[in-house]
Design a protein around this nucleic acid. Structure first.
Lengths: 333, 333
DNA sequence: CAGCGTTGACGAAACGTTTTGTGTGGGGTT
DNA sequence: AACCCCACACAAAACGTTTCGTCAACGCTG
């Protein structure tokens, strides 16, 4: 591998001049610039990123931390983020925190040691002092995605969950549903809270009361939903529709209903806030919100680049509107 | 951030001694070793990976290149690989080559410039001179996954597609199917070829002839399968079962059948070689092979670590047996 | 006791960049 | 004419490690 020294020797200039030419950090005369570029071509020189990173004190990589890279949501985010970042000359390291704050902090630490230029984090947000600990742990520019932490010093890009909840709830109301089961996630996780709040507000605005016996809280895994729906459908006045806020819930819900021989949408309607679910070829395809991951990635990487470039404006929460995709799983009562 | 210099000052030893203590590269007396460790604790010192990488000429990261990180297969692979590697102190960079060899070569180049310790590649394998180009492009230890390149100088870890094809074919034969449609992928892609070969052999061994009019080649995307199955079901003697070798095909197949009002498995059975598909809660759940991604990752990372450590044994092709998971989508004729 | 390998420690060089500080000449302003 | 400033180029320092070469002290062998 040729080094900058080789280029300097070929062009018969100093190392400094080569560096200045390549980075445009100092004026270089037209003649020398041409000589340098010719020498770069001749030598087939590419700057060594490792050496550059050491000297600059910051690397050309960005860290992405999500709860679980194997979920469709995270995989799509990773892909979109990757292409947004590689266009700007950045690489991407990633890690799954498995919804464990301690792991998350370790990963932030690890990435920081590697001098990442910035971080994209879908924060676990568990526990009371989480926000402060996170703010302390992150010493690089960072942007939060999906989950919003109130009062955080970081930019955040997330779904417009309030709008999403309106779309979902109105759709169900229009179809005549009044007895709607809602599977709420872990308390304190912003998408879950926001979606449930939006649901309640939209119901209230329509003059329909939310049946508290149809709300299941802290129900965010497959198994939770699997058992919850079977209980729900066995009470005196079962729901006519079930709303799921994430994909695990949705899968659990469908499996649970199937397990007691109920069919969707014939026996009960199902709607999902999470757009990633089995495709249209199956029965039934699921009416759900489509989350605009491409836009989320674009805005998040854009904010991160700005922060890396030194932008010190007040932190911003950017909301990306979801779209309701009406499929087969919801019918009129 | 404390540097090794600070530690040396605190312990009142030389930098060399600190480095030797930490890396165990040279004998250090018991007394100094203790002083050094105490100083490391006191300073809260962590070696700077960037500086280390520069000096060592190799970084502590491994690159993963897959066709598309957003597919469930790749996402699961990434996750499993990630945890296998982080346990050994390696980070992971990844990239999607979008099935474009030129992109793949660029990504290999990019990772090499970053001095990755090794590469895990699911090669695109397009074109006649691909194998030679790949061998020339990769200058670090590398392990291929999923796809095998004959005569390659790299280790490869892949499904035992021959066994998989046997399991699938025998299952269909046992159920009485004789007119089996087979959606073959791009020619030259080893999993596709191997699965189809295995199918033909198993059919031949059972004395059943493969109906050539039910074989669709170069059919590897959603749209291909979507139109192909609709044609297949409209010929004089339509198939009683359809075998799909990847997830895109499966989704296209299901959507195509639904589009012409056919139901699975009532009108036709469907079986998949790709274990990642919509979950059990939908109708119908799909009888498919389960690919043991955890084992693939474990073996691949193990081979890569060995190669990085200097193992220069002859390249090895490791086959991981899949399991047939019988669900609802295949019934007796 | 001379010779010699082994152990333990260290100063300095090296990795390949970027940046700092220094110097030189030329053009414009007092 | 003295002054200053700017454009341009360079040598050397720096980034934080690992490793090379040197050396002193020690114990062993013949």
């Amino acid at each position: 591998m040729p080094t900058i020294r080789d280029v300097a020797r070929i062009a018969n200039v100093s190392i400094t001049t080569v560096s200045a030419t390549l980075n445009g950090t100092a004026p270089v005369s037209e003649e020398l610039r041409a000589r340098v570029w010719a020498a770069v071509e001749a030598a087939g020189y590419h700057p060594d990123p490792v050496a550059r990173n050491l000297r600059r004190g910051v690397s050309d990589t960005v860290g992405l931390i999500v709860p679980d890279i194997a979920t469709p949501w995270a995989a799509h985010l990773a892909k979109a983020m990757q292409s947004a970042l590689s266009g700007r000359g950045y690489n991407m390291l990633f890690a799954s925190n498995e919804d464990d704050p301690e792991r998350e902090f370790r990963e932030i630490e690890l990435f920081s040691a590697h001098r990442v230029a910035g971080l994209i984090v879908a924060p676990t947000s568990h526990g009371p002092d989480y926000a402060v600990r996170l703010a302390a742990a992150i010493r690089t520019p960072a942007v939060l995605v999906d989950r919003v932490i109130p009062g955080s010093r970081f930019d955040a890009v997330a779904d417009d969950n309030h709008l999403g909840a309106q779309l979902v709830t109105r759709h169900l109301l229009t179809l005549g549903h009044r007895d709607i089961a809602f599977l709420v996630g872990r308390p304190g996780i912003s998408p879950s809270d926001e979606r449930f709040d939006g649901f309640c507000q939209t119901m209230a605005a329509a003059g329909v009361s939310v049946r508290d016996d149809l709300v299941r809280r802290s129900c965010y895994k497959f198994d939770h939903a699997f058992t919850a729906v079977q209980q729900l459908m066995n009470i005196g006045a079962p729901p006519t529709a079930i709303a799921c806020i994430n994909i695990a819930q949705l899968l659990g819900t469908m499996a649970g209903l199937k397990n007691i021989g109920l069919s969707v949408p014939h026996d009960v309607s199902v709607i999902s806030f999470d757009g990633f679910h089995p495709a249209e070829g199956w029965a039934p395809s699921i009416t759900s919100l489509h989350q605009d991951i491409a836009t989320i990635s674009a805005r998040a990487s854009e904010r991160l680049m700005a922060r890396i470039a030194g932008d010190d404006a007040a932190p911003e929460v950017i909301r990306i509107p979801p779209r309701l995709q009406i499929r087969e799983s919801c019918v009129a009562v």
